[in-house]
């Protein structure tokens, strides 16, 4: 495949999996005739029909529950959250039934379900449309949580998520949908439980995911100029965390910085930090540093919004301090 835009990589993953397996179907708000708010399902209903690309009423909790019932009885639904923040309205179905039901039922049922869509802080979308639900959902047992970050990993991960026999929360980022990348012509799948080593280095381990991967990469040239070689890891799998990859890097660099877009309190980084303390305390030469979003509702004003989210210059200065043993 030639150069592919992020949202089309997602579309290709869904298209390929729907062609491969007739039990795969998509449901959500405006996924059919309208083609999805971000065109991820564009024209798929014409190809697969209205039952396989099912436009639902605006009833998040109930259409999520319906997808769970369909998954329990043999289908493989993909729910599109028009905006992942809307899934707060489906919290009960996702937590009680998608997450816990297999266990509560003693293994009677499995729930092969993907819940995907755009999340994160966009461009002045206001607080409700700028949420990072991965942090809210990480404590629910039975869910897998994946955050994609490039057209390449978006496609390979989404195909794997659709084939997985568990409920997978699949986070895309609203500001990454127009990224472009050359994708392989041949089919490929990527593992859901493996972090991606984005850049090898030796001075510090930077753990990040989703859009913050790109903020870290923007900081990289400046860090190099200062003679710092960070090792950059995209967590990809937010639950379960890939401790093999994280541990190998910490054992090498002995310093850790986490860069995340979720809020600091109860965030993904909080869990990663606790895990590093438990597993790798003796390896650390400095406290783990977290760069997170401010613990506030995302403000509308552009300047305030920028101040809410971690920026590349903060990454540069904090890494420099960490490596210079000022932290």
């Amino acid at each position: 495949m030639a150069e592919t835009v992020f949202f089309n990589a997602l579309r290709a993953a869904i298209d390929e999996e729907m062609a491969r397996d007739a039990t795969v179907f998509v449901l959500g708000e405006d996924v059919g005739h309208y083609g999805g708010s971000y065109k991820v399902t564009k024209n798929l209903y014409q190809k697969y029909g209205e039952l396989r690309v099912l436009d639902t009423p605006i009833a998040e909790n109930s259409f999520t529950g319906m997808a769970i019932g369909a998954a329990m009885t043999g289908l493989r639904p993909i729910i599109e959250g028009m905006n992942m923040g809307f899934l707060l309205l489906a919290f009960n179905q996702i937590a009680n039934n998608a997450g816990m039901l297999r266990y509560t039922s003693g293994g009677n049922f499995q729930i092969p379900l993907v819940i995907r869509g755009p999340g994160g802080v966009g461009r002045q979308l206001g607080a409700e449309h700028s949420q990072r639900l991965e942090a809210y959902f990480q404590a629910v047992p039975g869910l897998k949580i994946v955050a994609c970050s490039t057209p390449y990993n978006a496609k390979g991960l989404l195909k794997s998520a659709i084939r997985d026999n568990n409920p997978v929360l699949f986070f895309e980022h609203v500001l990454l949908y127009n990224l472009k990348e050359d994708l392989p012509e041949e089919e490929y799948l990527l593992p859901l439980d493996k972090a991606e080593l984005v850049q090898t280095g030796k001075d510090v381990t930077i753990l990040t995911y989703s859009r913050m991967r790109h903020h870290v990469l923007q900081a990289l040239p400046e860090l190099r100029q200062r003679g710092i070689q960070p090792e950059i890891i995209d967590l990809i799998s937010l639950r379960p965390l890939d401790w093999d990859t994280i541990s190998a890097s910490v054992r090498k660099t002995h310093r850790v910085m986490i860069v995340e877009e979720c809020m600091k309190t109860g965030g993904i980084g909080a869990e990663v930090t606790a895990g590093i303390m438990e597993r790798l305390f003796d390896e650390l030469d400095a406290p783990v540093v977290r760069l997170s979003s401010q613990d506030i509702p995302t403000p509308y004003n552009g300047t305030l919004e920028r101040l809410t989210v971690v920026q590349p210059e903060q990454i540069v200065s904090t890494v420099a301090d960490l490596v210079a043993k000022k932290i």
């Binding site: 007739a22 039952l51 769970i68």
Partner: peptide
């Protein structure tokens, strides 16, 4: 909370008949 799940099972029956 069981009401939508039940509808999902019913949807599955319709899907098997009409799609599969």
């Amino acid at each position: 909370e069981g009401i939508p799940v039940a509808a999902g099972a019913a949807f599955q029956t319709k899907y098997r008949r009409e799609v599969l």
